[in-house]
Design a protein around this nucleic acid. Sequence first.
DNA 1: AAACCTGTTTACTATAACTAAACGACTAAG
DNA 2: CTTAGTCGTTTAGTTATAGTAAACAGGTTT
Lengths: 265, 265
Amino acid sequence: MEKANNPVKAVETTVRIVEALKRLDGATVTELADHLDLTKGTAHNHVSTLEQHRFVVKEEGRYELSLRFLIFGEYVRNEDILYQVGEPEIRELVEETGEIVHLSTEQHGLSMKLCKLLGEDAVGERFHAVKLQRPDYLHYTATGKAILAFLPRSRVERIVDEYGLAELTDNTITDRAALFDELEATRERGYSLNDQEEVEGIRAVGAPVRDGTGRVLGAVSVSGPVSRMREERFRDALPEKVTNTTSVIEANINLTESIDRSGVE
Amino acid sequence: MEKANNPVKAVETTVRIVEALKRLDGATVTELADHLDLTKGTAHNHVSTLEQHRFVVKEEGRYELSLRFLIFGEYVRNEDILYQVGEPEIRELVEETGEIVHLSTEQHGLSMKLCKLLGEDAVGERFHAVKLQRPDYLHYTATGKAILAFLPRSRVERIVDEYGLAELTDNTITDRAALFDELEATRERGYSLNDQEEVEGIRAVGAPVRDGTGRVLGAVSVSGPVSRMREERFRDALPEKVTNTTSVIEANINLTESIDRSGVE
DNA sequence: AAACCTGTTTACTATAACTAAACGACTAAG
DNA sequence: CTTAGTCGTTTAGTTATAGTAAACAGGTTT
């Protein structure tokens, strides 16, 4: 993790304001000043600068984050090659399995969801895209462990140094050595298993997506209640389906990239 | 439009950098410095500050916007009451009509899409959510005209002052008086019509969504090729369907808000 | 090796981001 | 109608800091 030696303080306060506007679901100048220990003048200057640039809207006397964040966010996602080629494939996977399917990538040592689909067994209807909440730590999700398994050990070390190994359930891996053993096993299997390590009663199977050079681009996972994730399905059937999906994604990414390299229009 | 009297210059350069990272699909420090007429040192300080706060990632030597923008963007959309109650309704509308359906709102005098769905006549499959690109001006879209029709005249004046009336097709309204006539007609009808004013060959029908106080929260529209938007359907059937949808949305919003006010859990 | 790219760091200075206080606009209370 | 209490915004003034320019370090390419 780079640690900006000459951080721009004014940018840092603006970031704090943006984060506070999210946390507080919008705020007045006075509220921002109180929460962030700024003067009203400073808070006002920042928030009005952000408003002028359309990242903030003033709605009925309160300042709120604007939909410009959505435009930027969708742009970022649409640029991501993993999302471009992965999204249609995980649509198929969600139809096949009926469970919850994730497509995630790693940024800053955290798991960022690109897409989350609920299958018909997970909800009433056919399938359903859902909100992408906060990022997750990598060590307790199926996608996260699939990613960690194929990152250079030094990166994994630094990530664990930075974020630690928070315990969410009895099954969460909280020991460094145990984590590296698990990652080794994951590498050998080619897929990751999550047995109620994030949420009690939920199991998941994940597999990495790697490019031609072996670099991990992200991972795909299928999650569901233990009641539907018993031995055979959890150990064989789903791993097979998930790795099939990631193989197709990997093939299509390599295809796309070699076409890019050949300069074909 | 508020015009920040004490803009924070450092924030403005950071905004320029963020916009450039989008425009250039990621950039190096040197590229940013060149494009934005900054020194490399300045560009580096800003971009590394943004990276430290996870709004930017360094991917293979290039700086790119991170998926944190998506998290913020989805948060903003999910907070929007119009999206919350409108999204399920326009799903129904897209199934009924088979055309393209939009749910949009106004921010900073521009039309911001909350959701865009393609119906089965518009694409092969059942229906499909698509990317929300840049904002649009309000005067040449069905949703935009529905919104403008129910904004206070003074606001409309200021919006036209700021952005003008850009001409996209022969049918685009580019005359101020003509626009106000059109908005008057829209108010009387209760819905807006767009007859190839944005794109040649595309017609659309839109209707506003207003809250209990009469304030416009946004608008819904159905768009399609002229070949499927002939007289009866364009003038009667679709306006009926669209206004039915907006009525349901309005009712649900009022219900939600009165429940909120009553403090029920 | 040397020249030429990078990205990053440094030392310096003018600038501009803060502080604190006051202002004008509202609302509520007396 | 006054007064006191909000609020957001603006002002003046000072100190911190953002930006400059230059040098540095790490890679390629020549």
